[in-house]
Write a protein that binds this DNA or RNA. Sequence first.
DNA 1: TTGAATATTCAAGTAAGTTGAATTAATAAG
DNA 2: CTTATTAATTCAACTTACTTGAATATTCAA
Lengths: 399, 399
Amino acid sequence: MKISSPRRIVGSNAERTRLHNRQVVLGHVRERQPIGRAEIARISGLSIQAVSNIIAELEEDRLLIEAGRQSEGRGLPVLKYRLNADGAVALGIEVRPDAMFGALVNLEGETLFTTREALPDNAPSTVVSVARRIRASALEGRCGKTQKILGAGVVMPGPFGKVGISGAGQSALHGWEDSDPIAVFQEALDMPVVVENDATAAAVAERVRGVATGLRTFCFIYFGAGLGLGVVADGEVQRGAFGNAGEIGHVIVRPGGRLCACGNHGCLETYASRIAARTRLADAGIEIGSASDIENLYNAGNAHLMEWIDEASGPLSQAVGLIENLFDPETVILGGAMPDAVLDHLIASLELPGGSVAARAGRVTPRVQRGACGRLTAALGGAALVIHDTITPRIAAKT
Amino acid sequence: MKISSPRRIVGSNAERTRLHNRQVVLGHVRERQPIGRAEIARISGLSIQAVSNIIAELEEDRLLIEAGRQSEGRGLPVLKYRLNADGAVALGIEVRPDAMFGALVNLEGETLFTTREALPDNAPSTVVSVARRIRASALEGRCGKTQKILGAGVVMPGPFGKVGISGAGQSALHGWEDSDPIAVFQEALDMPVVVENDATAAAVAERVRGVATGLRTFCFIYFGAGLGLGVVADGEVQRGAFGNAGEIGHVIVRPGGRLCACGNHGCLETYASRIAARTRLADAGIEIGSASDIENLYNAGNAHLMEWIDEASGPLSQAVGLIENLFDPETVILGGAMPDAVLDHLIASLELPGGSVAARAGRVTPRVQRGACGRLTAALGGAALVIHDTITPRIAAKT
DNA sequence: TTGAATATTCAAGTAAGTTGAATTAATAAG
DNA sequence: CTTATTAATTCAACTTACTTGAATATTCAA
């Protein structure tokens, strides 16, 4: 399975320029809506006329709508625009070994629909037919509305391709080794498709509609089956050369420590992850099924769970420290398939290293915070990726 | 001191499009020279005519030159072009607490001139006057040649701004806290200036003319005063939100281990860095002055130095593992102010974790290799950054 | 009431890319 | 040896999308 392809340096022409500028305008509207032509022109460096033409086109496509005139001091009152939330939708699909989740999200990142479907097996044919079902139920009853479907974001557990983490088989999908997921889903869903890992999708979800709104550089530590890291650097999603960046679960934080399924000792994942929590509780004779089991245990003040949190805190603090030192993000977000209360408790118990580039005077964002997108983060993230792609342009200039 | 400014999303127009396309053409020529118009057009997605116009312009600017016709099967023989190595030069200046280094590099990345000047103190006024002297001697005797000066890359030790690593004062410059280095050097050198940290500059040097030629995603572990990490991801230099990404020296690899100057215990820098080596040797009564002292000791087979290498190997292996897991690079390069022989020995002694996304079947590049740019890497890197900026475009498309 | 400030629109101009036909030169085929 | 085919390049016309400058609309301030 391979989701990242080599990139080719391409030239630009009038058509690509317009595409880029549409994204620029959409991006600025999203960030500062409602907003008028003149202001967009100022911050984008385009002429008012160019912005005007693009807005006309976006209005035609129903991605933007007028938001009334507003007088602000002298001069002609500004005719403001905002995103037309219902002008377009994106589908998000998360594939887990045992189930699939679907989410439909509008241009503003608002969730319109979510669903869960059991997954009897992981064969591509099964996954694809469930994906079709999710597509159908998500779009059902929306045929009347003339909403543009931007595409689908499919979230699958990494790592992708044949890599050295052999024990990670428990989180990877079987039967997908030789397939091209993008082509498969594109065919099945009949729309543009992007494929991403859960942590990255979660990060983008937080950027489109969560605690990372407006941030250009941040990291998301995602509790999935293992532990993943989603990285957005200067507005760009980081994937690595082979699509496997952010494998933080197998970073060694306790040399010579616990044996991990990957064969190494002291991986972060053996301390801070759902697997770690489950193992810890199983040792105490408590079996964990769903995430709500953990929530119940936490609410009941279960001593073993509390001990796990204590044990996870140190390694996790160390991981946050290294993320800060390596990526220098505006903030680190914690989230994924772990109850909010547990995440909050974990965050509160962190003892962040003082010697970090992040221990900076005059910070505005907290060093670590909990994600706002909740349990469905990944599926929402898939959809958010599509929204993100339509709205976020690539070229930035220094101020 | 602040070198990173917030970026603003800007629109594109005909002028900016041309600038981008010039870089695209230059980039493709650099990568596959000698090369003809038609091939450039094919790989860049531009029309032949567009490429033709751009080549005419670049030839006019003396950045490209004809490389003769070459028959390749049927049809009109291709008129090939190559970079005009001497068409333009870039100045690199490295500022260290005790000395400054200068390098002049041509468009092909070839070193034309290097120099070293002692630095009596770190006051901006002193640094600036030495920089002016370096500029003068570098350009001396080149006034006759009509070489375009693209700009200067100034390399300074990070971290920049007020951060939590208080003990890092030994590597940071004093008296620069409130100044704007870019403006200062731009004024002093009378040319466009970029400022970068040593590790990043070294990484770019390897990309322009070293072992990372042709790679889009890789990391460089740089032995400077401390230990830094330069990251190039998908062709883009990674700086972090505040310009301090890559502070790998203060990543904790041995929890509860040696006390670092930063106040934490077990930082990588206390095991694998010049400071660590110096401390280790000082304990044995051996004082280290310059880097050549280390080289002599190594050649003499000094037992204490060998012991240090042994001690450094474990933490360094762990660091390489985490870099691989977090960034998923095509390769990790080791280099900087450490003798080649020591670097080679260090690399040979690494025991890389098997459980890493980098332990992949069918690798083409080695997981870890030594940098090719030698001791002057950083100064060369400064110049390379300028070359890189003129040649590397930003927009890439999936194949 | 008048002038200045600001946003927007209209109309013309420009830069840079694309397209299609013509030209040139090499190889392959008859 | 002649002719056809192939491929690179150039020429000229066309198209797209941005910019510029003038005109218009609306509000605030004097």
